[in-house]
């Protein structure tokens, strides 16, 4: 299983792929599984499951709040893998997005093995760059997993070449210089970054950070292979505390809007 197939399938339909993110264990483990499956049903092509972490330096207030709620609810790394298994069973490529220390603590090789056993497609690593990740690269290659590293507007061409050469699945382009969180306008840094990345690799390039509606998704889908949405999904659930059905309805409506957006470009 690799996320690349989902990008290729979308490209064959003449559109960008929609990549949706939620942290595991939010609002609780089963609620998270239900939410992620609703996103699959409503049109997400690839799923990213966040591993809640105590010190999420790349996340803005929205995802921080969800991760903290998940941790306070007692979510464990094993629950994250259980969530992967339940979502991957839909056939949709499912990756884990995680800060590095929880993987170190679990054991890099053991994590790779258990992720592969759960049907996971691979890892997205926001605070691990390929030059610091030889242990993960070896384990991922051993277990046939995707390695999704990030490129940023501040990355030199040399680093983009190095990073994309180490990626498998797709390349994650962070569209803004800043943390995660929905923004009212899309970034003018994203287009040039995608162009520089595509000059270095044949892998699909997904753009993330800041997308919250179908119109923004359509705008990014004009030049990127995938549109990555996280905080807006989290917000949809945060806005309906204690009312799971309303949360799922909001999540489904948002997914449908974004899925229409990536088809409109």
């Amino acid at each position: 299983m690799t996320a690349r197939t989902a990008f290729e399938k979308a490209a064959a339909d003449g559109r960008a792929a929609l990549v949706g993110y939620l942290p595991a264990g939010f609002p609780d483990v089963q609620g998270g599984i239900d939410a992620l499956r609703a996103m699959v049903d409503a049109g997400c092509d690839v799923i990213e499951i966040g591993l809640p972490y105590s010190d999420p330096v790349m996340d803005g207030p929205t995802i921080q709040a969800a991760a903290q709620q998940a941790l306070e609810g007692g979510v464990r790394t094993s629950d994250v893998l259980r969530t992967v298994e339940a979502v991957a069973a839909t056939g949709t490529p499912t990756l884990v997005m995680t800060y590095w220390n929880p993987v170190v603590r679990y054991g890099v090789e053991r994590f790779a093995a258990d992720l592969a056993n759960a049907g996971g497609a691979g890892l997205i690593t926001p605070d691990l760059t390929p030059d610091s990740g030889p242990e993960w690269i070896a384990a991922a290659d051993q277990h046939d997993l995707d390695k999704v590293f990030l490129v940023a507007p501040s990355s030199t061409d040399e680093r983009i070449t190095m990073t994309t050469a180490a990626c498998r699945g797709f390349v994650y382009a962070t569209a803004v210089m800043g943390v995660t969180g929905a923004r009212t306008t899309t970034s003018d840094l994203a287009g040039p970054l995608v162009a520089r990345t595509k000059a270095a690799t044949d892998l699909p390039v997904g753009v993330g950070l800041g997308v919250s509606n179908g119109a923004q998704a359509a705008e990014i889908a004009r030049y990127a292979d995938g549109v990555i949405v996280g905080s807006a999904f989290v917000r949809a659930l945060l806005d309906h505390p204690g009312d799971g059905d309303a949360g799922l309805r909001a999540l489904t409506a948002l997914t449908e809007d974004l899925a229409a957006g990536v088809r409109r470009a």
């Binding site: 605070d127 610091s132 940023a152 501040s154 990355s155 962070t174 210089m177």
Partner: peptide, 17 residues
């Protein structure tokens, strides 16, 4: 550089800086 200490585990966005 694997079993020792230090290194740089940081978002790519900060690596250039």
């Amino acid at each position: 550089p694997v079993t020792g200490f230090g290194g740089r585990f940081m978002p790519e966005a900060l690596v250039a800086a």
